[in-house]
């Protein structure tokens, strides 16, 4: 069997199609036995329809070009702050139904702290920086999802580099 191809350090994908979490995470450490752990976050669509009031759905719009640029910048920042071997962000757009996967963040490092912390950093930062907008349809009406202050607060807690000695 040929040796598995080594994953690139940074993988960013913006796509309409679903993704296979197991395959994506397996690829993240392929060919790199220096990796001791992978942290991941999978975001799902929640059902917003009142009970028995029909099917809810969500449509994600994005800014092609800037989305990839911003996600790459966020992932590069994570790789500067933590000793990561590989890093993956997949974000979907288009119409999604409750239970559908929206986003996958995966981080691989020699040690768990770097993987876990950078994974949380990535999902917090992409929520406030990546140009995506959601419109919810609860079966009756459409409503643009509003940004929440709690998301800004979650992103702000990473303002200082957690790994840097200056901030400790």
């Amino acid at each position: 069997m040929p040796a598995a191809a080594t994953a690139p350090a940074l993988t960013i994908r913006v796509q309409e199609a679903d993704f296979d979490v197991g395959a994506e995470l397996a690829a993240l450490s392929a060919g790199n036995t220096g990796i001791g752990g992978i942290a991941s976050f999978v975001g799902l669509v929640r059902d917003v329809a009142p009970h028995g009031r029909g099917q809810s759905s969500m449509t994600l719009e994005h800014y092609p070009g800037m989305t990839e640029k911003q996600l790459t910048a966020i992932a590069e920042e994570a790789m500067r702050r933590w000793p990561l071997e590989t890093c993956l962000v997949i974000h979907r757009y288009g119409r999604l139904l409750p239970g559908d996967r929206i986003v996958l963040v995966g981080t691989a490092s020699a040690h768990r702290a770097a993987a876990l912390e950078s994974c949380a950093f990535l999902i917090d930062w992409l929520k406030t920086r990546a140009p995506f907008w959601k419109i919810e349809d609860d079966g009756n009406a459409q409503r643009w999802v509003e940004a929440r202050d709690s998301d800004d607060a979650a992103a702000a807690r990473w303002a200082k580099a957690p790994g840097s000695t200056e901030s400790r």
């Binding site: 975001g43 799902l44 669509v45 929640r46 994600l60 994005h62 800014y63 800037m66 974000h91 929206i102 986003v103 999902i123 992409l126 929520k127 406030t128 920086r129 990546a130 140009p131 995506f132 907008w133 959601k134 643009w144 999802v145 509003e146 940004a147 998301d151």
Partner: peptide, 11 residues
Amino acid sequence: VALFPPVTGGH
């Protein structure tokens, strides 16, 4: 130049 409301990506 792009104009848009605050972003709401993620989950």
